[in-house]
Design a protein around this nucleic acid. Structure first.
Lengths: 239, 239
DNA sequence: AGCTTATTAAATGTCTGACATTTGCGCAAG
DNA sequence: CTTGCGCAAATGTCAGACATTTAATAAGCT
């Protein structure tokens, strides 16, 4: 695979990393392939070798590439990616053609984890946590239905789930909130956003909120599971 | 805080990063403090500015530092650390004075997560997963009791839990296995390793193994919880 | 022919010095 | 007291040469 198919870029090693990462995530290179050389990348995008090296350092840290002196740069397979690296979430967000295997894996994780997280949140939530949750839910309500507010709605959706993870008051769970963004963003492109499904989604989210507010761990657990059942349908994972 | 208290190092930006990271994790600098400048670090350890920059790049990616041109390098607080970065696990492993808040947070995560993971493993485990689990468990048995095999025993302990995460056959859960190593290694230094507690720990691990082997999700869930109750006692989190 | 050993080419890694850019501070004019 | 200018100090960037590792190739010996 060559670099010719990639769009131009404008300034900064971060953007270059973003560009190359999205190409890798989209499967432009097969695992095991040799990635273009530093100098070639520099020529193609008209950037210095330093910028290229900085970008490739990020990709290597994220487990997307494997570099060894003399041999070159190899593309690693999906199983080796560091999915929990915050940079990965950034790169995955907004990517239309995310590997279905990946979407499914992240969903399966959320389906098993979020009920537990919601239960923890019901135990540990403070006043500010509830405020965040309510604010996010209100935003979801206000942006529901309008077609041109779909992106905004997704942001509130992300905020709601992120607030749930934060409310667990556990450092580890909290950082996992990064994974939500790409998962929820994938919803925008895959779901039809019919009115009745949106209402259903809102109702299930409200039950999570209420359960956490009433400190009902069991209800929070089942409500979170119900939200994700709705999500699975919208993602097309189950009919 | 100065660099004078740090041990010398020998070659490689990775080792330098390891050294500085452990100093940061041990709390040698307070959050908000300004970290030594690149040139000073280079002088002190007799390495080039390149090596220093490479090391600091890793620490920055892990959320330990925040660098801005002109201002300098600031130390970030514990809540900002990227605990899920594999490098962090490497750095935390073998650190004697790990922040109790961190040990507790990781333990709380495991206590809520591992029952779910064990249940998933009971559903999804294949033949090779069972083999890994049995091999690790056998290693734990063989190295129990002997004082000079404590490190080896811990390795088998890590392998057992890691095999459980792997057996869930979920890409996200699997990567979380990194967190196990520092958590379990902390056990070595904190627990008294009396014979009866070791026997008890082994018995509970065996129940997890049996439950997964028999594909009993509920039993796996409760057995994993029992293992972690034992761990909590050994960690001194509960009496 | 087959195996071992130099040689060479090609890629990433490293060093060095200079320069660019950003930030915070001091100082002076208004 | 505020504003603006300029200086100093820190990280960021660049360019070029060099070092190191790796794989392939050719030479040479048995």
């Amino acid at each position: 695979m060559t670099l010719d198919a990639l769009p131009p870029h404008q300034g900064g090693a971060e953007q270059l990393a973003h560009l190359l990462a999205q190409a890798l995530l989209a499967g432009h290179w097969q695992p095991g392939d040799t990635f273009p050389r530093e100098l070639d990348i520099g020529k193609h995008f008209a950037v210095s070798r330093n910028q290229v090296r900085n970008a490739l350092t990020s990709l290597t840290a994220a487990g997307l590439l494997e570099r060894t002196a003399g041999r070159g740069t190899l593309v690693r397979k999906l199983g080796e990616w560091h999915l929990l690296d915050p940079l990965m979430s950034e790169w995955m967000t907004g990517l239309v053609n995310l590997d279905p295997q990946l979407v499914r894996a992240i969903y399966a994780f959320r389906y098993s984890a979020e009920p537990v997280v919601a239960a923890l949140a019901a135990q540990a939530a403070q006043a500010d946590d509830l405020e965040r949750l309510e604010c996010a839910f209100a935003g979801m309500e206000n942006t529901a239905g309008s077609v041109d507010k779909r992106a905004e709605h997704a942001e509130y959706d992300v905020a709601f789930h992120d607030a749930t993870y934060r409310a667990s008051h556990n450092l580890v769970w909290r950082q996992m909130g990064h994974l939500l963004r790409p998962s929820i963003m994938a919803l925008i492109h895959r779901s039809q956003h019919r009115t009745d499904t949106l209402d259903d989604s809102l109702a299930r989210h409200r039950q999570v909120l209420d359960a956490i507010r009433h400190r009902d761990t069991h209800a929070a657990e089942t409500a979170a599971r119900e939200v994700l059942r709705r999500t699975a349908i919208d993602l097309g994972i189950v009919s």
